[in-house]
Every structure is written in structure tokens, then in C-alpha cells.
């Protein structure tokens, strides 16, 4: 089966990340419904808890992975010129990685 994983891996990651994203969003909605955050400091204190911060980090990772597979699918479907395809994929990768670093920075700053 080696070598057959590239298409399968992306497809599996898309599904696994989707499950996490859906679960986390439901958790967030429930949490905010049951424990409304009165103000920014309260929200900040909540996010700064290690478990919540880790869950958020997982959310960001899942979002980036899911976004990558989805956008990659769009590019593979529609962009047929090889050079253009590589360029588009590279730009998307940089954009997503940039977003990832930015989000991690926010999480670290909030947790300090």
C-alpha cells in the first residue's frame, strides 16, 4: 500500500479534522451558552487555562489542515497549468502557515 497514501492521507485528514472542528465548535457554543463571558479579561483568563489553550491550538491546527486539503482540492480541480498550480499551492501554503504562526502567537500572548 505504500505510495497510495498521498490521496488517501489528505482525504483522511480532511475527515478527521472535520470531526474535531465540528466537535470543538459545538463545545464552544455550549460553553458560551452555559457560561457567558462577561468581559475580555474573563475570556482571556478562560483561554489561558492550559487545557483550553491546548484545545484551541488543536482547533487551529485542524482548521489549517482542513483548509489546506480543501483549497488543494480546488486547485487540483481547476488549475491545470503545472507552473501555475505549483505557484497557487505555494502561495496558499505560505498563507496558511502564516495564519498558523499568527494564531499561535495570539494564543501564547493570551496565555502569558
Amino acid at each position: 500500500m505504500s505510495g497510495s497514501t498521498d490521496g488517501l492521507r489528505a482525504w483522511l485528514l480532511q475527515r478527521i479534522s472535520a470531526v474535531y472542528l465540528a466537535g470543538f465548535v459545538i463545545y464552544l457554543l455550549l460553553h458560551f451558552y452555559l457560561h457567558p463571558q462577561p468581559d475580555y479579561p474573563a475570556w482571556r483568563a478562560w483561554v489561558a487555562q492550559p487545557l483550553v489553550a491546548i484545545a484551541f491550538a488543536g482547533f487551529i491546527l485542524a482548521l489549517l489542515v482542513h483548509g489546506w486539503v480543501g483549497l488543494r482540492d480546488v486547485v487540483l480541480d481547476y488549475v491545470h497549468h503545472l507552473g501555475l498550480r505549483m505557484l497557487t499551492l505555494t502561495l496558499i501554503a505560505f498563507l496558511l502557515i502564516g495564519c498558523g504562526f499568527w494564531a499561535v502567537r495570539v494564543l501564547i500572548l493570551v496565555s502569558l
Partner: peptide
């Protein structure tokens, strides 16, 4: 089975199905 699945490897042959 193994050969058939290996033949469908990659992002295009099978996984373009959405």
C-alpha cells in the same frame, strides 16, 4: 486487491471524486 488499490493511488485517479 493490493495491485488494484495501488493503481488507484494518488490525489487524482480516485480522490478527485467529491
Amino acid at each position: 486487491t493490493d495491485e488494484r488499490l495501488a493503481n488507484l493511488a494518488g490525489p487524482f485517479k480516485l480522490f478527485r471524486c467529491h
